[in-house]
Amino acid sequence: MPHAAIVQRLIAAHPPRQDALLPILHAIQDELGWVPPKATTAIAQALNLSRAEVHGVISFYHHFRTSPPGRQVIQLCRAEACQARGSEALEAHALAALGVGYHQTTADGAVSLEPVYCLGNCACGPSLRVGDQIIGRVDAARFDRLLANLREELP
């Protein structure tokens, strides 16, 4: 199904009120991995908002992406409790292993890297998230294994 049709279907599943905006954005990103620019127009029309208003909301929240991510997104926890357990070394390793910075995607399109501030796994960090899975006690070796697995799983 083309993006436009998916977006229309997801919008139609919600009431046409402004407070449905975040649920709609979540539904779109869950399905497409990002929120395409054309969705902004469609949502604005459906909720009777200006495009600028919808865009303002999308850009405010770190969660929403306005460009397509890699096939997997790794979120690394940068918050204090993970720092206390060595997340800065993991971060340095991850950035080097992937050869990208935060908010960037590896050249092969496999992995995007994002920062996150706490995943609620603060006694068993360093923590990261891939999809809806949170992984604890991640060190460099574990990160490399995870990366190898992710690359293998990819189509």
Binding site: L22, L25, H26, H62
Partner: peptide
């Protein structure tokens, strides 16, 4: 239930 958007 409503889900936030990653904003502290």
């Amino acid at each position: 239930a409503r889900l936030g958007g990653g904003a502290y």
